[in-house]
C-alpha cells in the first residue's frame, strides 16, 4: 500500500500531535518508564524488518535483512521486558497484597 504526497504529510503531522498530546501531563516519576515504553513502541520496526527480509532476493539482501530482523526483535522483546519490570513498582496496594497471599 503506497501512501503518497500530502496524505503522508498529514499522517506524519497528526501522529506527531498525538505523540505530544498523549504524554503532555506525565509526572516526573514516570519519565524513565515512559522512555522505556516508547522505546518498546518503536520496536514496531520489526514488521518492516520482516517485510524487507521477506522480499530479499540476493544473499547480500538476506544478510542485511537478517541483521535488521535480529536487531528489531531485540528492540521489541528487550524493550517490553525492561518496561514491564520498571512498571512492576507501580502496582496498586491491592495487587501487592494479593500476590503476597499467593
Amino acid at each position: 500500500m503506497a501512501i503518497e504526497g500530502f496524505v503522508a504529510i498529514y499522517i506524519f503531522m497528526l501522529a506527531a500531535f498525538a505523540g505530544f498530546e498523549v504524554i503532555s501531563r506525565v509526572p516526573v516519576i514516570l519519565h524513565t518508564p515512559l522512555m522505556s515504553g516508547s522505546n518498546f513502541v518503536h520496536g514496531i520496526v520489526v514488521v518492516g524488518a520482516m517485510v524487507v527480509l521477506g522480499h530479499a532476493e540476493t544473499t547480500a539482501e538476506q544478510v542485511v535483512g537478517f541483521i535488521a530482523v535480529v536487531l528489531a526483535a531485540g528492540n521489541a522483546v528487550g524493550g517490553y521486558v525492561v518496561t514491564e519490570r520498571m512498571l512492576e513498582m507501580f502496582k496498586s496496594k491491592d495487587e501487592q497484597k494479593k500476590e503476597a497471599k499467593e
Binding site: A16, G19, L34
Partner: peptide, 27 residues
C-alpha cells in the same frame, strides 16, 4: 522508524515511529 515506514509503505511504522519521535522529543 517513521521515515523507513514511508520508504517501504508501512503505515504502522509511520504512525508508531512518528508518535514516539514526537513523544520522545517532548520527554
Amino acid at each position: 522508524v517513521g521515515f523507513e515506514g514511508y520508504a517501504i509503505g508501512n503505515p504502522a511504522m509511520i504512525i508508531a515511529g512518528t508518535v514516539v519521535g514526537a513523544a520522545g522529543t517532548l520527554l
